[in-house]
Design a protein around this nucleic acid. Sequence first.
DNA 1: GCAGAAGTGTTGACTTTCAAACAACCTGGT
DNA 2: ACCAGGTTGTTTGAAAGTCAACACTTCTGC
Lengths: 297, 297
Amino acid sequence: MDEGQRTVRPETAADAAAHEPAPGTGAGPASDAASGQENAAMRYTRAAGRRAHILERVQASGFVSVADLVADLGVSDMTIRRDLRRLSADGDVRVVRGGISLPHATLRTSEFISRAHSSAEAKKRIAARAAELVHEDDVVAVDAGTTTFGVVAHFPPAFTGTVVTHSVPVIQQLLHLPGARVVGLGGELYPPSQAFVGATTVEQAQRLRMRLFFLGAAAVDERGVYVEADVERATKLALMEPADEVVLLVDAAKFSSTAPVRLCGLDRLTSLVTDERPPARVARELERHGVHVTTAD
Amino acid sequence: MDEGQRTVRPETAADAAAHEPAPGTGAGPASDAASGQENAAMRYTRAAGRRAHILERVQASGFVSVADLVADLGVSDMTIRRDLRRLSADGDVRVVRGGISLPHATLRTSEFISRAHSSAEAKKRIAARAAELVHEDDVVAVDAGTTTFGVVAHFPPAFTGTVVTHSVPVIQQLLHLPGARVVGLGGELYPPSQAFVGATTVEQAQRLRMRLFFLGAAAVDERGVYVEADVERATKLALMEPADEVVLLVDAAKFSSTAPVRLCGLDRLTSLVTDERPPARVARELERHGVHVTTAD
DNA sequence: GCAGAAGTGTTGACTTTCAAACAACCTGGT
DNA sequence: ACCAGGTTGTTTGAAAGTCAACACTTCTGC
């Protein structure tokens, strides 16, 4: 480093000439420096625009570093830092070492997603494998639940089909799949599964038809599939009915769990995706009903 | 600092005795050191538990610093850092200087909320003032839109009523209002407003009744209220119909905007909350129809 | 015009974080 | 007992981020 003083200072084209008009006033973004045509009138409106850009950045990705902003906006790190301090005083962002993140309140993707990490590894593998069943132009329904939630994240990036769901986290996730058409089922929010349930939900489901339904459950044994509550049962059944294929996603723990409400028998399933081979008795029964079992390892 | 060597090392109770059993093995969280009873069998299962805790933290708040985790978990910064590297390799978090944040994909509260900051100050004030109209045990509907979105954040913390909405961001926000009963209207997702619209949505709205409806709009003049698209119009009308009071929330910019679709006349409004006094012609017309105008300053 | 206000860039000293290398330690198997 | 493999704490030097003070430029109001 010949002129290497310290760290992240911006280096626009006006670098060779050390003390030129460039320093002193914000030289503007790199593009300006190159084109050289800059309206003097807009110079001092820039601070506000910069802060807007910073907010966009942090809200888009949850965190931006000072260095990134310096590169983006073509101003010095000190200027960025002063903007940050101001934004933080307004409560819009939280300043942390090296950059900013969203303030506590804004974010909170909620306990739901954190629960999704209880057996994160297994669920991730299951979800990835299940997502392989989805065609780019497909009509699929996605159940509420942590495992099924993961499937959406593994959808093909070029997905242009339709997704039906009553799960709030799934809807939220789908906002970022630009090509997808999303049909949401309304109803009353049932907090334990963060999904809409009730008569209205069932009614809406009955009007639909889809090729695939990714089903979640609380427990599975050789006699059938079980869930935690009756309200869940009604909604799940309503979504199974109009689906050509029902794919059950469960991690291995579900084979040794119990849950109070019986959803249906194993004969209602088309396939099952899990992370370990099911116990012998369950496996035998699955085979008897022609359920296709996929083990994601 | 008498023993001040460097930085953030943990300082449990076993601090005075320099080279004791404590260093070398993870001494466990501070509580363990105090109670002293620790099961030897679980010692080396701790790494996984630590990583789970870290995930919870970051998912709860969007960012955690290494220093925080050191204090929380009572291990050295290097250990934390090693955990972080591993989590980041799994794609669960993003390591940034000083800590971790959620990875790009997980978060993305989307452009929507960032748009909410276009005239952030004004909208925040409007939202706060409008939220004062809400009783603790109330039935209110919330329209899609950046301004109306803000209202939910200002609901009384002890709110135990019912909220009806077709807006995804609003639903998401309501997940964190534990007392609230949430009725979501399903339908087809309309990306520009991140809300559900269509015949199904309208139909569901027609079955409801609420005391208050917080309405958003793209433009207002003395002849009425305007929105951007026809699909929005149908949904908004369907929510106005069953509401005892219709409260329109608009920032002052909307008085000088134009939008192509006429929603309704000013006579359909009960109140209007804005940040600057409306232009004379609009104000006169509002008064003529008995619309109560609140200016949030 | 001119003085003050506001916005920036620069410098230099300081603090915090990072990573590699090593040593100490636990656990499980032979 | 002892060794291999994994986990943790410590040291150390380098890299990165932070802050206050100062100098300069442009804008605003008089």
